[in-house]
Amino acid sequence: MGTATEIEKALAGWTAAQYGADAGVVNLRRLSGGASQETWAFEVASGGRTDPLILRRAPGGAAAARSSEAITLATEAALLNATAASGVPVPGVRHVSPPGSALGEAFIMNRVDGETIGRKILRDAEFEAARARLAADCGAALAGIHAVPLTGLPELPRSMGRDQIDKYEAIYRGFGLPRPVFELAFAWLKANEPEPADPVLVHGDFRLGNLIVDASGLAAVLDWELAHIGDPREDIAWLCTNSWRFGQSENRAGGFGQLEDLLAAYSAAGGPAFRPADIDWWEILGSLKWGVMCMIMYSAFKTGADRSVERAAIGRRVSETEIDLINLFEGLARHA
């Protein structure tokens, strides 16, 4: 079940139960975002008013078999509720639809106005004021995420630093395509692994593209499908990874601000008092992970598993991550 007509019919039943028999679903359309799940926007018209909402749904309403590291849409919805209670700006969840229901595996959430495209956020004049405070906003949001009590959360994968080294090295070795920079990175990460921090809830993909930004700053944190229990420095460093600065490399925090400002806001909001140097190891891991992910994307294109131009284009970016890693190692050498 996946046509717009079928989805609209399923939504109509929920709408009538929540808003009344005179309510209707209008302007249902599929959005382009969301690589692994469907995202639909629609409005509920009732009593002369419209309520803008988002449907996040498994493809066809029935999720494929998941790996041990993937989380369900119901778990994503539970994390949105838990992080909202911790003061994190997230869309409010309105309904969770279980597998096998008329709507399929899905949840409905409030629609939040703003922009998600990184290059627009970093360049357009309308976001100038937002850019000035976005590092502080992200620091406070991350502190809220990492402060969520683990007791009471649904079961989540656990992935600390060494777990990720082992996982991505196994994938990399499986390609049988040695890359000297990656070899250096794996060896350095193993030799310089820091003591793990206390495990916390980690978003797993906290970066521009998964953040809604409006004219005043951070409006919402989206896309929790990679959430897990891990080290808080992972989230901070992933935002700093050069691939997610979209050409604004001089601004270490997401292309929009300085890491020192983010860490100050993170600490002020209750997070640990990390130094920029505490993020270095994790940023190197982040660039290496993305490099291996680019290899995965190209392999999917080459084997025919996914012949989209997007997969081929992302696959070509593996060389960018090699340059980023060289720059990171040179930076460490200069500050040694």
Rank of each mutant, 00 (worst) to 15 (best):
E38K: 04
L53N: 05
G174E: 06
L288T: 08
E105M: 11
R173N: 12
F246V: 02
A78C: 10
A64Q: 11
T39E: 01
T72Q: 08
I121W: 00
E310Y: 12
G100N: 09
A16M: 07
T75F: 03
A12I: 02
T116A: 10
A300F: 14
N327V: 02
E38M: 05
I108S: 01
W282Q: 04
T50M: 02
A58Q: 09
W281V: 05
L262C: 10
E76A: 06
V148C: 13
A129K: 15
L122D: 10
H335W: 13
R162W: 09
R252P: 03
V181M: 12
G209T: 05
D198E: 14
A16V: 13
G60D: 10
A129W: 00
A140P: 02
G270V: 06
A147V: 10
P91Q: 05
A130Y: 00
S36P: 08
A147F: 03
G255Q: 07
L55Y: 08
R317W: 08
F246R: 02
L208R: 05
R162V: 13
D205A: 12
G61A: 11
S67Q: 15
Y298F: 14
L80I: 08
R57Y: 03
E169L: 13
D306A: 13
A143W: 04
F274S: 04
A147E: 04
L184P: 00
E234P: 00
A4C: 02
E38C: 08
T303N: 12
F329T: 07
E234W: 06
C294D: 06
S267A: 15
P149C: 07
I165E: 10
G255T: 03
F246G: 01
S68E: 15
D324S: 13
R173D: 10
A191S: 14
Y172I: 09
M109L: 15
G161A: 13
V88T: 02
H335K: 14
P194T: 14
G255A: 06
F256E: 01
G33D: 14
E126W: 06
G92C: 01
R173T: 08
P59K: 01
G270D: 09
D137S: 09
F274C: 05
H95K: 11
T5I: 12
S46P: 00
E115Y: 07
R311N: 09
L201Q: 01
A130K: 02
F246C: 00
R207E: 08
E76L: 03
S159C: 10
V88G: 03
Q164E: 15
W244M: 02
L239T: 11
A269E: 03
L142P: 05
A16Q: 14
R207H: 12
A78R: 04
A136F: 03
A277Q: 12
S319F: 15
G255K: 04
R30L: 10
G104F: 07
K302V: 13
G291H: 00
D223T: 07
V221H: 09
A253Y: 02
G34C: 02
L263G: 05
R162E: 13
G47F: 11
V309K: 15
A187N: 13
G217M: 03
N192L: 09
D231E: 11
L239V: 09
R158P: 00
A141R: 04
I171M: 03
V112K: 10
K190A: 14
A17S: 09
A84Q: 13
L285Y: 06
L218S: 05
N210I: 13
V112Q: 10
S86T: 03
L222F: 11
D278A: 08
D205V: 07
P98D: 06
E128Q: 15
I323Q: 14
L122F: 10
I323D: 15
N110M: 12
